[in-house]
Structure formats: structure tokens, C-alpha cells
Amino acid sequence: MINFAQLQSKFTTLRSNKAFELFVVFVIISSALLVGAKTYELSPLSLTLVTWMDRFITAFFLIEISIRFLGEEHKKDFFKNPWNIFDTLIVTISLVPIDNTDMALVARLVRVFRVLRMISVIPELRLLLNSLIKAMPQLGYVILLMFIIFYIYAAIGSTLFEDINPELWGDITISLLTLFRVMTFEDWTDVMYETMGVYPMSWVFYLTFIFFTAFAFLNMVIGIVVNVLDEEHEKIRKQEAIDAHEPTIADLQLQLEQIKVMLERQAK
């Protein structure tokens, strides 16, 4: 008979198996396509097929999370990983029946969020998300500075252009929305030409605003995220070197110093 230790070893091997991981990714993608299929009007036969596929996916996710939990050597460590907690919550709530229950709407929404399990399965996506989260403190200052620029330009726009088009510049909140439209280049030239009919030099207002927001701040955000991403890659490389017991540059320098000391002693 297979004891629990052998069973745990098999589960550990299975959950780290590349073929199994690819199949999990395939099921997650299928789950996403299934959610999209439900937004269309389906025939009774197609609806029945979709329902059974949804049940299969839910059952597979339950089995998969159980394998990952049982394959963990220290069970408490399983819940120290936030992604494991997220996956467990998604799978647990997915067990709620969709039809004829008060929780039906919640269950349907959770099935949409099952697509996010792709992040917990693919390490590269986890790295990107972790980098974005770690960059948030630095991005916060950029966003604050951007809001200040938005507010100043919105106040100026509301003061100068309110009489030209109250629907776009009636107050500061509407002006903020108009400036967001300008920043995203959504027919912004129509807004500019309208004000240029009264203030011919108003193009300076729009071009300077676009330069600050769409160009300068956007590049600052990209630079911060890329910098944090590089730092995360470097941490991973160092950890992999430690795990593989590969000497780092610091270790090689230390070894060279030791060899130098030994040669000096022999020379004496």
C-alpha cells in the first residue's frame, strides 16, 4: 500500500510537472472562453454543454488546489503564499451553485475572476504583478504630481473656456474629464479648434498639457516600472545562484583574496 509520505511525494512531483501546469493553463483559458460564451444567446443543447463544462472546470480546480495543498510538505506554509489563498477563495466560492440561489450573482462574478488564476500559475505574470505592486509607492508621487497638473489646467480651462462650451468647461470636475479626454487623444483636436475660434493662442494650453501628461509622466511611469522589474529579475537571479550553489561575484572576490593571502604567506 502507498503511505501518505509516498502519496505526498507523488503530489509534489505532479504539481511541479510542466505538462500538468500547461494543462492547468489550458483549463483556465477554457474557463475564460466559457464565461464569454455565456454572454451570448445559446440554444438549449449548447447551454447544457456549457453547464457541464463549467461543472467539470470547477471540479478540476478543486482537485488541482487539493493536489497543491497535499503536495506541500508543511501545510501551514501553503497559506503563507497570498496566491494560494486567492486560488483557494476563488475555487471555494466557485462551488456555490449558479442557478436558483441568492448567491447566484456572486458565483457568476467569481467565475469571471477565475481568469486571474493565470497569474498565480505563470511565474512571469506573477513577477510582472509583483513589480507593479512594489512600484506603487513611487508611482503614487507621480500620480500626485499628475493630479496637481490636471487640477491647475482644469482651473485655467474652466476660467477661460466656460463661456465657449459649458458642457466641456462648465466647472472644474467637468474640466478634469475634458482634460482626460485630451490626454487620451479622444477627438482632442475638436476641443482645441473650438476654443481657438475665440482664443487663437489656446493651442499652447493643449500642447503643454499633452507634453506634461501624455509624454513626460507616461515615460516616468514606464521608467519606474521597468526599474523595479529589473530589480526583481536581479533578486531572482541571485536566489537561483544561491539555490544552485553557484559562486557569485562577491564569493569569487573573497576566494581571490584568500588565494592572495595564501600566496603571500608562502612567499614569506
Rank of each mutant, 00 (worst) to 15 (best):
N3A: 05
S9E: 15
K10I: 08
F11C: 14
T12G: 13
K18V: 06
E21D: 11
F23R: 02
V24D: 13
V27P: 03
I28P: 04
I29D: 03
V35L: 06
K38C: 10
T39N: 07
L42I: 00
T48Q: 15
A59M: 07
A59G: 10
F60G: 05
E64S: 12
I65K: 04
I65N: 09
S66H: 02
R68A: 10
R68I: 01
F69H: 04
E73C: 10
D77F: 09
I85A: 09
S94M: 14
S94I: 04
D99Q: 15
N100W: 13
D102S: 15
M103C: 12
A104K: 09
A104I: 01
R108A: 14
V110W: 05
V112M: 09
R117M: 15
M118I: 11
S120F: 05
V121N: 05
V121H: 00
I122V: 06
E124Y: 10
R126T: 05
L127Y: 11
L127V: 04
L128F: 12
S131P: 01
I133W: 04
K134D: 09
P137N: 02
G140M: 12
Y141H: 10
I143L: 13
L145E: 03
F147G: 06
I148E: 03
F150S: 00
Y151L: 12
I156G: 00
S158P: 01
F161D: 00
I164F: 02
N165F: 04
N165A: 14
P166E: 04
G170A: 05
L176E: 02
R181M: 05
E186W: 14
Y193V: 07
M196W: 03
Y206H: 03
Y206A: 01
L207C: 08
T208C: 14
I210A: 09
E232Y: 08
K235Y: 06
K238W: 11
I242N: 02
D243A: 13
E246F: 15
L254K: 13
L254Y: 12
L254G: 10
L256Q: 10
I259Q: 15
M262F: 13
Q266A: 14
K268G: 11
